[in-house]
C-alpha cells in the first residue's frame, strides 16, 4: 500500500461557490441580463411582492422568474397565473439555499425564452441563503412587520449582504410592537449602504418606489 500523503488545502468552504458566482455575474452582465436575488423568511410576502412589482414592470422588460423551494410548485404557478411572465420552479432537493451552480442551471432554462430581467425567489430562510452568493447582480430581502424590528440584530449577515431591504406588511403596524425607526437604525448599523423601502404588497403602497429602484439598477447594469 502507498504511504499516506497529507495535502494542505487551506481554503474556505465557500470559495469555489464565490468564484462560480463571480463568473456567472460577469456572464450575465455581458449578455445584458439583470438578476435579482430576493430573500426573506417564509411567509414574509415574497411571492405577493413579486406579483405586484412584475405587473408594473412587465411592459418594460422581458421578465423571467425562478422560484426556489424545497418542494412543491405553488409559487411558480401563482406567478405564472397572476402575471403571465415565464416562471419556473427549482427544487433544492432538501437544501436550505441555492448556490451559484443551481442558479446557473435554472437560468439556462429561463434564458431560452429571451429575457433581460431575471428574478430568483430564494428559499424562505434568513440564514443559509446569505452564506451562498448566487451570482445575482443585486441582492434584496423582505422583512415583514410581524417578524419584528430586531431581526437585523439577530441575522446580521443577511442584512449586511443586501443592497435593498423591503419592509413589508406596513398596514398591520398598529397591531404589532414594530418600531420602524429602530428597524431602520438596526439595518443601517449592519449595512450603511442599504436602501430601505417600506411597502405593503397587498395594498400596493411603496411598490412604485421598489419598481423605480429596479429601473435604476437595471439601467446601471447596462
Amino acid at each position: 500500500m502507498d504511504a499516506v500523503k497529507v495535502i494542505e488545502i487551506k481554503k474556505s468552504v465557500y470559495e469555489s461557490n464565490d468564484r462560480e458566482a463571480d463568473k456567472l455575474r460577469a456572464e450575465l452582465k455581458a449578455k445584458g441580463i439583470f438578476l435579482l436575488n430576493l430573500m426573506s423568511s417564509p411567509g414574509s410576502g415574497k411571492t405577493t411582492t413579486l406579483k405586484s412589482v412584475i405587473n408594473k414592470l412587465k411592459s418594460e422588460y422581458r421578465i423571467g422568474v425562478m422560484e426556489a423551494d424545497i418542494d412543491s410548485d405553488v409559487d411558480a404557478l401563482t406567478i405564472a397565473r397572476e402575471t403571465g411572465v415565464k416562471s419556473i420552479q427549482l427544487h433544492t432537493g432538501g437544501m436550505c439555499h441555492l448556490d451559484a451552480g443551481m442558479t446557473r442551471q435554472g437560468l439556462d432554462e429561463l434564458i431560452d425564452s429571451d429575457i433581460d430581467f431575471a428574478i430568483l425567489e430564494n428559499v424562505g430562510n434568513l440564514v443559509c441563503p446569505a452564506e451562498f452568493d448566487t451570482g445575482a447582480t443585486k441582492n434584496a430581502m423582505i422583512l415583514s412587520v410581524p417578524e419584528g424590528h430586531d431581526k437585523p440584530l439577530k441575522y446580521p449577515l443577511m442584512f449586511s449582504i443586501c443592497d435593498l431591504v423591503l419592509i413589508n406588511k406596513i398596514d398591520v403596524m398598529p397591531y404589532f410592537d414594530f418600531d420602524m425607526e429602530a428597524c431602520k437604525k438596526n439595518i443601517l448599523m449592519r449595512n450603511p449602504k442599504a436602501t430601505i423601502i417600506p411597502i405593503c404588497a397587498k395594498t400596493g403602497e411603496g411598490i412604485d418606489e421598489f419598481a423605480n429602484w429596479l429601473r435604476e439598477e437595471i439601467s446601471k447594469n447596462r
Partner: peptide, 21 residues
C-alpha cells in the same frame, strides 16, 4: 443551518484535489 449543502461543496473540492494528486 446548511450542513448538507456545505458537505457537498467540501466533497467536490477535496475530490478535485484528490484527483490532481
Amino acid at each position: 443551518m446548511h450542513e448538507l449543502g456545505v458537505v457537498f461543496h467540501i466533497i467536490d473540492d477535496v475530490t478535485e484535489v484528490g484527483r490532481e494528486n
